[in-house]
Design a protein around this nucleic acid. Structure first.
Length: 461
DNA sequence: CTAGGGGTAATA
DNA sequence: TATTACCCCTAG
């Protein structure tokens, strides 16, 4: 595999780019060599992750997403990686979501619900079962029985039909992406930089700190940047705001990046910051220049504005900052905000970085608060019943009622229980005062009329 | 994952 | 302003 092709492919896959572009096509266009090599496997995994991410951004979670999740499982298997829980959950809930979208008619027999059941749950998941796939989880089987039962049971059909599974599916897909991005090692560029850094550190000569960095050539500069991103706990997060998220505009941005604000970093890097890199041979420099030109050329095609009015010498800076940006979808449960799903990606900023050895940063995102959604009597009932059965094991309670709590997290359950406890305590204390209990209860109920729509009779632990 | 602290918006 | 329900963050 041509090293530049690999780098460029990797760069595009790891960096948030155009959600309309197909990463599969990119890989085939690059004509990568041995498709079974570990490198190529990593690229393919990146590609699938990027496609899943793009489908989230576009808001198109469909059976194609199931395909991607299945492909990802196979790739991970080739890599001898274990299947993550998030992967199973994402598959399960995406499958449910794909079915739910055919449940818009009032009756199960109208429309294409049966087709969807057949296609997704009998055929697709049947194949998975035959192949012994780990994607066939307990939850998936439960959904299968529930959905098939729903065909017979109009009441269950109604209940499932009214839930918002999409939100859960998105959350799990999002979690899967986050975990898988984190599992991918350093990119090739980062690895090269790391090796080079360690090599130089070994033969490091103390002192000789050159203050003036302005006239260092592009290769030295980019290499240094690359290392500071890769090795150090990135101390210049502030300067990087917007650097990696704005399409094109941030790509070549270099203003202020040189200012290091970590003393340790200064010290570590100081010894290497010499006017001329002694260990950077001709070949390295050539390679770096060529890569820079290559990336500039591609970037120019993507966004012509970025190739103008900027000092090209430092242009490579961000090209080595191949931070993958795990898609974070806002956790909007209500249908009214579904179209906001991808918005977080746009707002994403890599300003707060917790650098790792691989230099990857975890962007802190300005999150969008979920819409406030009052608890339905059904949910409250399921919660109180769940507490009776499982105690304060919110996860178990949620798992026991996946449809009812499709839009609630374990934390939501815990919070609601906290509220309920207060509510009942208040009632009880009013009761203890005797005569006017009923009156006060009435008052209480009025004051929180919408807020606690039901008051199941339960005892507290 | 859970518990607990705290923020926000609605309401009285 | 106080209270409430819901949501979010984070320590352990």
């Amino acid at each position: 595999m041509e090293v530049f092709d690999k780098w460029v492919t990797e760069f595009f896959l790891r960096r948030q780019n155009n959600p309309r572009a197909s990463s599969i096509k990119l890989i085939s266009a690059m004509q990568l060599g041995d498709s079974h090599s570990p490198d190529c496997l990593k690229l393919k995994i990146s590609s699938v992750l990027r496609d899943i991410s793009n489908s989230l951004i576009r808001g198109t979670i469909n059976e194609g997403t199931l395909d991607l999740l299945e492909i990802l499982e196979k790739l991970l298997l080739q890599q001898h990686s274990l299947l993550m829980e998030s992967h199973k959950s994402a598959y399960c809930w995406t499958a449910a979501e794909c079915t739910l979208r055919f449940m818009w008619p009032l009756l199960a027999s109208d429309g294409f619900f049966t087709d969807a059941l057949e296609r997704i749950w009998t055929k697709r998941i049947g194949i998975l079962k035959e192949s012994g796939s780990d994607l066939v989880s307990h939850d998936l089987l439960k959904w299968e029985t529930d959905l098939k039962k729903a065909f017979e049971d109009p009441e269950l059909y109604q209940r499932i039909r009214e839930t918002n599974i999409r939100y859960t599916a998105i959350s799990f897909l999002n979690q899967l992406l986050k975990e898988q991005w984190a599992l991918l090692d350093s990119s090739s560029q980062e690895s090269v930089a790391q090796r080079r850094f360690l090599k130089r550190k070994a033969g490091n000569v103390e002192g000789d700190i050159v203050e003036n960095r302005t006239d260092r050539n592009a290769v030295d500069e980019s290499t240094r940047r690359l290392e500071s991103d890769t090795i150090d706990k990135d101390g210049n997060g502030n300067n990087r705001e917007n650097a990696s998220d704005v399409e094109g505009a941030g790509f070549l941005e270099n203003g202020g990046i040189d200012k290091m604000n970590s003393a340790e970093e200064e010290q570590t890097m100081g010894a290497q910051e010499q006017e001329h890199e002694p260990s950077l041979d001709e070949g390295d420099q050539m390679a770096a220049r060529e890569l820079k030109d290559y990336l500039l050329e591609i970037q120019g095609h993507v966004d012509p504005s970025t190739s103008q009015g900027r000092e090209p010498n430092n242009a490579i800076d961000h090209s080595v900052n191949v931070t993958p940006q795990p898609t974070r979808v806002n956790r909007t449960g209500t249908g009214t905000q579904d179209h906001n799903e991808a918005r977080d990606n746009v707002n994403e900023k890599a300003s707060d970085s917790q650098g790792t050895l691989s230099g990857r940063v975890r962007p802190r995102l300005p999150h969008v608060r979920r819409l406030k959604k009052f608890w339905t009597p059904e949910e409250v009932e399921a919660l109180t019943g769940g507490v009776k059965e499982y105690g304060k094991s919110w996860k178990d309670i949620k798992n026991a009622n996946p449809a009812v709590f499709a839009e609630r997290t374990e934390v939501d359950l815990k919070d609601k229980w906290r509220n309920l406890v207060v509510y009942y305590r208040t009632l009880n204390s009013l009761g203890a005062k005797g005569s006017c209990r009923q009156q006060k209860e009435q008052l209480f109920k009025v004051s929180s009329s919408n807020k606690t729509p039901s008051s199941p009779n339960i005892s507290f632990p």
